[in-house]
Amino acid sequence: MNNIEIPNNKPLLSVKNLKKHFVTKKNFFGHPKEYAYSLNGISFDINKGETLGLVGESGCGKTTAGRTIMGIYKPTAGEVYLHGERLDLSKGPEKRIQMIFQDPYACLNPRMTVGEIIGEPLEINHVYDDNKAKLQRVYELLELVGLSREQANRFPHEFSGGQRQRIGIARALAVNPDIIICDEPISALDVSIQAQVVNLMRRLQKELGLTYLFIAHDLAMVKYISDRVAVMYMGAIMELADAEELYRNPLHPYTKSLLAAIPVPDPDIRQDISSIKGEIGTGDMTGCPFAPRCNKATDKCFKEMPAIKNVEGHQIACHSI
């Protein structure tokens, strides 16, 4: 957030031209024949204490981006730097990057107690030698996320969705990560519970100086929690700008139509809802991925992928601007 000083200008996390292509079909000899182009070279920086929102429609590659940065998926190309030092993503997940998952029912092992779940990352990373100190840390984490230490001996099924998400947050915080990737942490929750979890995440960010990469499709929530927002479409970043600025003054045609499509809980604002036509394509094209749905598209848009440029403080990939 604003009140946290940035010691040097080096970003905490830097993603450079990250690509991830999944093999969808193999030929007779087991060699790849067809690919799904999930991530087509994305680049961004995240500063310490900041929240970067990553939004887009389903299938745009936002979850793949989060998982590739974490090292769950091996990237096809590109680099990830943490504190200016290149991460070897082939080694698997990095301890300094932790993740909060979407489904609070699927991400907790039903046969482990909450204490064991939160203690597991401490055990895997050999943070504490004796059990007492580890247990103390687990209690501390439980209280930090608004649960009580008595609940450490209970099992996940005894908790509601919102409480489970709190457990997920405590687990992610256990090893004091530098950055937390939040993959749709609230989209499985009810409206009133969403607010509780988001408030908790913001409070923790203020208290502990956390850095988030917040992945979501709920544009209103992303605006609320993020300092900067990146809009993705079919594996590429279309526009990246300060949250307030992006929502007040969207420049990219895709961002514009995406924002116009959000239903606002106010019956007086019934905008022109027919702003965007067609559906998401397949992603193996050469030009701008949004061109087939764009009303400003020219021949150039279909032939050439636009490069990222700086316009009015926005990083934007579009030929028409």
Binding site: V191, S192, Q196, M221, Y224, V264
Partner: peptide, 24 residues
């Protein structure tokens, strides 16, 4: 009221904590 207040809005600027509905 609680339900409506707990929603962040795209069309408005707000930076205060979201009001929540307590309990279950």
């Amino acid at each position: 009221r609680g339900l409506l207040n707990s929603l962040p809005r795209v069309d408005k600027v707000d930076d205060t904590e979201l009001p929540v509905i307590e309990g279950h």
